[in-house]
Amino acid sequence: MSGFGNAFSSSIGKKFIMGATGIFLILFLIVHCGINALIFLNDGGLTFNIGAHFMATNWIIRAGEVVLMIGLLAHIFQALRLTLQNNKARPVKYAVNDGKANSKWYSRSMGLLGTLLLIFLIVHLSNFWVVSRFTGIPTVDANGHEDLYAVMKATFQNPLIVGLYVLSMISLCYHLLHGFASAFQTMGWNHSKYNGIIKGAGIWYSIIISILFAAMPIAFHFGFIQ
């Protein structure tokens, strides 16, 4: 075989795709969370709307959005393929299997956590992304920017949506707790000098990102920010 051969169809190549898209999504979440955290300035969303306006109009960001969608879909489809193959690799299940004796429940439940996140994403994208990109944001703020902040505020008056968001961020936290360090292991970055840093950074990243995201619907719903 020539060129890269079966680089991406082999089991290790498939891991590379999961890990690389995972790291890409981890980086995306930092940007997403950073801009969203502007709502906590509690200035009626003026600063946040500037950020949102920039993200919606800058062509580099818009091009990045396409890459993001491709990365996300690759992560999801690859995960589905891997899960189906892995189920086939053990056709007869154990009568007794003591998984907790040797691994973390969330490491064994990445598919379940990911599915919960997928359901969340569908709701989330229809709440905000579809509105800002397609159906249109109804009002503008004092600066004349589309008032995405007002859309958030209105959306998070619904307690069911708030509940779904908070539960989904718990799923996200556990998904990341495994995924962050796992991506490094997949990429071959397992080294005594870095393992502690990777593990620590993964735990802090997962917790901080999830708490910040979960705080947003809560803050709107209970009127902590206006």
């Binding site: 089991s11 892995n86 086939k88 973390k104």
Partner: peptide, 10 residues
């Protein structure tokens, strides 16, 4: 026909 590793560490 072995499965694909997901780094559970088991």
């Amino acid at each position: 026909g072995f499965g694909n590793c997901t780094n559970t560490g088991a």
